[in-house]
């Protein structure tokens, strides 16, 4: 770890700051203090994205950096831009677990991979305990597990994991006019995203029936609509056990042509 560790909050450019990003910013400020390090807030976006950086400045981060780029890029492009714009591997990088809107939460994973850092994602708690970064995340069955995270690391936190501190009034006023540092990075041509077509309601496959037999149209229609078929009373059976019942049902279905595409082996499973 460097003399003065660097803690970075990577914020999504949407103004106002989303709940998860607010938590990430608060954790950044707390951990920079705890580590005796520097804090930096960074975002990828056009000039309009500077508003969230001003909020971060008002809340007390020491430096901010805007990396010029599209506001809504895919997670990998955002991660590439962040890594290129930072130009170094920070000791700790924090994100919200997903950006508001339709975030997938994949950016921190891409970031960790590109930075070669450890990752711990979707955290509900994150703090420095006896010199070690300790985190908690949810696992199945309402349980939680505790993690010890080595540095350098990328961590994403859930909204509500920390309440963002209120900006002091002088800092708030100063942040309005503060100069925002801008980095320009060369980004690869954005890949064509998967495009979504219109959604259709579910429609089951048509049931294929054998062609009706008959010499004239009327007979064929009768056969098709089964109007000629004598009505039979429901057959009541009392199978010996579950297996007998299954055999009975399958036999009935097969007899009426519903299982024609299945073989006997399929029945076994």
């Amino acid at each position: 770890m460097a003399e003065q560790p660097l803690v970075v909050a990577a914020l999504s450019p949407a103004d106002p700051l989303g709940g998860a990003d607010q938590a990430a910013l608060e954790h950044t400020l707390r951990l920079a203090e705890a580590l005796g390090g520097r804090s930096l807030a960074v975002t990828v976006g056009p000039a309009g994205a500077e508003e969230v950086l001003r909020q971060a400045l008002a809340c007390g981060v020491q430096r901010v950096l805007r990396i010029d780029g599209p506001a809504a890029a895919d997670s990998d492009t955002t991660a590439r831009a962040l890594v290129a714009g930072l130009g170094l591997v920070p000791d700790l990088l924090l994100c919200g677990d997903r950006s508001s809107g339709r975030g997938t939460g994949a950016t921190p994973a891409f970031l960790a991979a590109r930075l070669g850092a450890a990752q711990a994602l979707g955290l509900t708690e994150l703090l420095l305990r006896e010199g070690e970064l300790t985190a908690v995340r949810r696992i199945d069955g309402r349980r939680r597990e505790q993690l010890t995270v080595p540095l350098p690391a990328v961590c994403s936190v859930e909204r509500g994991s920390a309440r963002l501190r209120r900006a002091a009034l002088p800092a708030l006023l100063a942040a309005r006019t503060a100069e925002i540092q801008v980095a320009t990075v060369a980004l690869p041509e954005p890949r064509q995203p998967v495009r979504l077509g219109p959604a259709r309601p579910y429609r089951p496959r048509p049931l294929v029936l054998p062609a009706p037999v008959g010499t004239d149209p009327l007979a064929r229609i009768r056969a098709l609509t089964e109007t000629d078929r004598p009505r039979t009373a429901a057959r009541v059976i009392t199978p010996a056990g579950p297996e007998a019942a299954v055999d009975e049902l399958l036999g009935y279905l097969r007899e009426h042509g519903y299982l024609a595409h299945l073989t006997r082996e399929d029945d076994q499973c």
Binding site: R166, A167, A168, L169, P170, A171
Partner: peptide, 9 residues
């Protein structure tokens, strides 16, 4: 006085 830290204006 406001409710922000250092909040006097």
């Amino acid at each position: 006085r406001t409710d922000r830290p250092d909040g006097d204006l």
